[in-house]
Design a protein around this nucleic acid. Sequence first.
RNA 1: CGCGGGGUAGAGCAACCAGGCAGCUCGUCGGGCCCAUAACCCGAAGGUUCUCGGUUCAAAUCCGAGCCCCGCAA
Length: 299
Amino acid sequence: MISVVYFGTYYFSAHVLESLINSGVFNIKMVITQPDRPVGRKKEVQASPVKLIAQKYNLKIDQPETLKNYSLSEVADLNITCQYGLLIPKSVLETARRGSINVHTSLLPKYRGASPIQSVLINGEKETGVTIMLMDEKMDHGDILRQQKIIIDPQDTYETLNAKLLAIAPELLIISAKDYLANNIMPQVQIHEEATFCKEFTRDDGKIYWEKTAEQIFNLYRGLTPWPGIWTEYNGKRLKLLEVKLADKIIELGKITAQQNQLFAGCGQSTSIEIVTIQLEGKKPMSAKEFINGFKNIL
RNA sequence: CGCGGGGUAGAGCAACCAGGCAGCUCGUCGGGCCCAUAACCCGAAGGUUCUCGGUUCAAAUCCGAGCCCCGCAA
């Protein structure tokens, strides 16, 4: 058994952790995840997805606010990190006998940073993948152990692409870890000059600029749905577009108009999108047809 | 006590500010028209107006309390 300390926080990471546990190859000595955070309108404190999995398997858990000056109580063969979300200092990375490896959901050195899955969609990339890499002090900067490429479907959204990456990541991680520990793998230095970076998104990033083309707006939708979602202003209120498609109507730029039971919006360069599902501020999500029924007078 | 919007027929909305038979667009059901239709015409059913209390001759509407949903913010 390979002993491991696992660092992770979010949904994707939780599934990777569970796959490691179920592989039977790893002994998870400890799980480090972010502290429970208040979330939602009621500010209810919520455990991270990784914590829930760790609890399910009765693993030892620690949730430090920061790893600065942190000293890891468990020494393992390997630290494995995936979507942890906090900086891990060199001293912690080096605590494990063979150091730390990371799962990153892009083809490094492209899309280093917090939001590779969203960013490749927003930029209309045709392919992405999963990279297993050694960690060093700089973010997503270490040598590459293995990389697997996948094709992005033009209809892929964050959710479907996330699922595709999740389908290949655990196995790639497991064989990479085994080969690395057996010295059957030659780590490859990244071509640092080709590195690109992506930032964490906020709700403001979902604001639609209608002068962009339909394809650009559609890509924004693909990357930012379901969170933070894309939105525009309508009669002074925020209007979320929960589901959109590319269309081929000619519509005045920025104007939302009803044709039969469908809603269309005009984008830049005489392109347009169809709005399938919509949510007005203070209201529940509704279909284009429902929206048209109630708001016919003011459209 | 973080800010704000909302709860009216199966759905989405109007009427509320200025109290007086609860209306519109759909959907559903029945009938008609048509080669045909998600189109068009005629008709029908379907409401304790979120709950509890108060004011009033009279409350969806005004006042008080509560429950629930949602957009921000975090």
